[in-house]
Simulated scan of single mutants.
Amino acid sequence: MPPMIEFWFDFASTYSYPAAMRLEAAAREHGRAVAWRPFLLGPIFQAQGWNDSPFNLYPAKGRYMWRDMERLCAARGLPFRRPSVFPRNGLLPARVICAADGADWVPDFVRRIYTANFAEDRDIADAGVVCDCLTGLTDDPETAVATAGEPDVKARLRAQTERAVALGIFGAPSFTVGGELFWGNERLETALAWPPEDEENAHG
């Protein structure tokens, strides 16, 4: 059976948006199960001496990224609107996922949050917006949002961010298959094809 792919993402990450929107279908084609792993880029960036997104700190890089996102989303038929605030705080929806502990609705929720941020220019830090994204997925969106504030849930997200650091993750989206790390939306197919047959045979 092919190994599971872990998808590491931050809701503020631009390139995580197209990755999240296509991951589940692509993984299904490869017979792969997906583990959805929200984490926080902020502490990782701070450890590198950044107090903001590198796309804001380096304007030329930011201009390129926004144009690249327009091209990429147009090519994939994804709606895109540059957020009026960037980066937005994705802490609350990330905690909602940690509290959900692998619930079946998590992939749909992830896609709704990314759509809210990068297609509808909505504030994903707002509890009302997060509740809207949960509507129809869980019987009690308000309770799901309230549970996200509990200390053990906060600890889970911190631990997940620490695990990301331990795995060598420095940006999003990232994918891990076994001990192998792949960074960037364009590396999704490479991650799904890992390990190559010759490597599998060598360890078989």
Rank of each mutant, 00 (worst) to 15 (best):
E162P: 10
E24C: 06
R187D: 03
F55Q: 08
I5N: 00
M1Y: 15
N185Y: 06
A144R: 08
Y114F: 12
P18D: 06
F45L: 15
T115D: 14
F9G: 13
R95I: 03
G102F: 00
I44R: 05
D108A: 14
C98G: 12
E150Q: 14
L157F: 11
G179K: 15
T176G: 00
D152C: 04
R37A: 07
L137M: 01
T138S: 08
W36I: 02
D139T: 10
A127S: 12
F109I: 03
V96W: 03
F55Y: 13
Y58A: 08
C133F: 02
V165Q: 13
G204R: 14
G31D: 08
A75H: 14
M21F: 13
A100H: 11
P173G: 11
F118K: 05
N51Q: 14
P93Q: 05
A146T: 08
N201S: 13
E186S: 15
F86K: 07
A33I: 12
D108M: 10
A33Y: 06
Y114N: 03
F170Q: 08
V153S: 10
N51R: 15
V165P: 10
T138E: 06
F45T: 06
A12P: 09
V165M: 15
D52G: 10
A155T: 08
L57E: 13
V130N: 05
A146K: 13
A172F: 05
R187V: 08
G49K: 10
L41F: 04
L167P: 09
D10S: 07
A20T: 04
R71F: 12
P3F: 03
G90F: 03
P173K: 02
R28V: 15
S53R: 09
W50E: 15
V34D: 00
A12K: 05
L188G: 12
Q46P: 06
W194P: 04
W36V: 00
R122D: 03
D104P: 14
A103C: 03
V34C: 01
A116I: 00
F109Q: 04
C133A: 03
D123Y: 04
D101F: 10
R37L: 02
F175C: 05
E180C: 11
P107T: 12
Y64T: 00
E24M: 07
P196R: 15
R67E: 15
N51A: 14
P79S: 02
Q48Y: 11
N89S: 07
L41Q: 03
R71N: 13
D126P: 04
L167T: 12
E150D: 13
F39G: 01
